[in-house]
Design a protein around this nucleic acid. Sequence first.
DNA 1: AAGCTTTGTGCAATCGTTTGCGCAACTTCG
DNA 2: CGAAGTTGCGCAAACGATTGCACAAAGCTT
Lengths: 328, 328
Amino acid sequence: MTVSLKDVAQKAGVSVATASRALADHPRISEATKQRVRQAAAELGYMPSAIARSLVKQETRTLGVVTTTVTDPYAAELVRAVEDAAGAAGYTLLLLTSHNLPRREVAAIRALQERRVDGIIVISPRGVEHYPDILAHVTVPLVLVNHTLDHPRVRSVMADNRQGARLAVEYLVDLGYRRVAFIGGPTTSRSARERLHGYTEALRAMELPLDSRLMFPGQGRAEDGRRALLAMLDITPPPDAVLCYNDLTAYGILAQAWALGVRVPDDLAVIGFDNIPFSELTAPPLTTVAQPTEAMGHTAVALLLRWRRGEAVDTVHFDCTLVERATA
Amino acid sequence: MTVSLKDVAQKAGVSVATASRALADHPRISEATKQRVRQAAAELGYMPSAIARSLVKQETRTLGVVTTTVTDPYAAELVRAVEDAAGAAGYTLLLLTSHNLPRREVAAIRALQERRVDGIIVISPRGVEHYPDILAHVTVPLVLVNHTLDHPRVRSVMADNRQGARLAVEYLVDLGYRRVAFIGGPTTSRSARERLHGYTEALRAMELPLDSRLMFPGQGRAEDGRRALLAMLDITPPPDAVLCYNDLTAYGILAQAWALGVRVPDDLAVIGFDNIPFSELTAPPLTTVAQPTEAMGHTAVALLLRWRRGEAVDTVHFDCTLVERATA
DNA sequence: AAGCTTTGTGCAATCGTTTGCGCAACTTCG
DNA sequence: CGAAGTTGCGCAAACGATTGCACAAAGCTT
C-alpha cells in the first residue's frame, strides 16, 4: 500500500541499509548513490514511517499535552505557546483533555505513556493526588503548569497566583474600594486556592475585615459570576468591588450587571484573572491579572527538552502583572 | 528501562505469544494462565507500547487535526467537538496548527501522514490549491471542515455560509436597516468568499443597491473591525448596519464603537458570525450567525471512521441559524 | 483402543526502520 | 610491491508487539 524504504531501495538498486543512510545523508555513502536514492524516493513519494523509526530510536519526537478543555481561552493560550515552542524544536503534540475530571486526567497520562511520548505537560492539573500511584510505573518526565508535586520525575511551571491576587486587591483598595468580594474557582484547582489565599492575605495586610459572606464559591464558569452577583445584591451593605477567580467568571458578573442595570465600575468594580485575549475587546474592557502564558508555555517545553538531554532542571516561577483597564 | 511484554512473559513463565494473547483475553488461553499473566503485568506496571502495536496492526488509532490556531474560539470549539467524538471512539488527536499559512498547512498534513495517523481533519483549510500535489502520495483519508475539494480521498463537512450570511442580511433589512456594510475575511478562506457571496446575493434579492464602499477587507481579527469602523465614519451617509466575517471582527467594531461613543445598535447594528461561547456574555450580547459546530465536529470524525470501515461516505452540509441577541 | 476433536501453548515471521560490524575494492605510502 | 588506511556498501540484529501455523496433551466417540 504505502511505499516503504524497501521499495525505494529496490528502485535505486541498493540495500535497505544503504537507502536509509543515503536519505540520512550519511558521510560514507557516495554522492552518486545518494542522488539515485533521493530520486527514487521522490518518484515513489516515499514518506518515512515515524512509527517504525520511533520503535528503533526509542523516541517519538512527540510531546503529550493534557488540559482541561481547549475551549477555555486561558488553556488555549497555553496550548498555543506550547505548540509553538514544541514545533520550533521539531516536536508534535498529542492532545488529550480531562474536562476537569481527575479520572480522565490520570487516564490521559497513562494513554500518553503507552504512546511513548517523550514528555508530558499537564496544564492546570486536577488530579495530582492520584499521581503517586501512576508515577510508580510512568517513566516519562512530567511538567505541571500551575501545580507542584514533589517527585523525582515531576517539575513545574508556576505563576505566582497569590501575588497576583494580592496585587489586584491592593489596587482596588488603593482606588478607595473597601468591601471587596471574591468569587472562587474549583476546589481541585491549586491556583484557585492560592488566589483565595492572596485575597485574604492582602485584606489582612491592609487591615480590612475579612467577611466570609463576601466570599462566593464558583467553578470558573460565567454562570458562577451571574449567580454571585445576584447573591451579592442581597447583602447589606453590598460589596463595592469583586475579584474573580478568572475572566470568564468576571464576564458572568458583567453580563448580569448589564442585564440588571448595575453600572461597572461605578456601582461595582470588577477584576478578572488570566487576561484572556478577549478581555481587551469588550465594552468596557476588563481590568484583570495577567500571567505570562507565552513564557510559561515555552518554559514548559524547554524544561522537558533540557531534561531529556540529561541536564538538571528545576521548577520555574513567574510573577503576575495587573492589566489596568476600565472595570475598576 | 520500560518493561516490555517479554518481561511480563518471563515473570509469568510463558512465551511472549501467550502473554500477548492472555492480555488480549484470547479464548484459547486458559483462565489460570490469564490470571498469572495479568498478575505479572500488574506487578511490573506493564504498559503496552502503542508504537509497536501500531507497526504490526498498521493502524495508530490516532486522528490528525490541523487547524489555524487553537486560540480562535471557533476553531477551539470544533477541536473540542472532534476530540470528544474521537475520544469516545477510542482515538487520540495529533494536533498541528498552520497559523493561516498554506505552507505550514501542507507541511502539517505531510507530518501527520509520516506519523501514520488513521485519518486527517483539516479545520478551515487555507491551502487546498496545493493539495493535489501532496495528495498524489498521501494515502490517508482527509476530511475538510469548511472547504471542499473534488478528490477521491477527500470529503467535506460544510456549513452553508452563503445561506447564513443571507439570513443575517435579510434579518437586518427586515428590521429596517438599509445601508448594510460587510467586513470580509481572509481571501484564502472559502467561507469568507461564501459569506461575501451570501451578502451580495441577499442585497440583490431585496433590491437594495450594492455599494462597494460598504465592503471592507479583513483577516478575521478584532483589529480589522476597529479599522473598518473608523473607515465607515468617513462615508456619507454612513452605513447603519454591518455584517462581520466573524465574531472577533464584530467585537473589534464594538470595542471601537465603545471608545468612540457610537451606540450599538442605535447608531450602528452589528451582526457577527460563528456564535463563539463568549458572544452571549458580553454587554450587549452579540447577535450572530451560528454554525452547528458540535454536530460538524462529530460528523467529521464519523465520516473518517465509517470511511475506514469501508463504507461509502459523502460530503455533509449543515445549515446556519441566526442567534438574535442585542446588537441588531 | 484407535481415531477425532478440542484445548492450551510456543515458534517464528512480520511490521518498517536504524545501526554495528564485516568485507571488498580502491588509495596511499614506505 | 605489500601493508595500512579509506571508501562504499550490505548482512543481520535489534525495537516490541501481533498472529498464522504447528503440535502436544487431554477429552470424547464408537
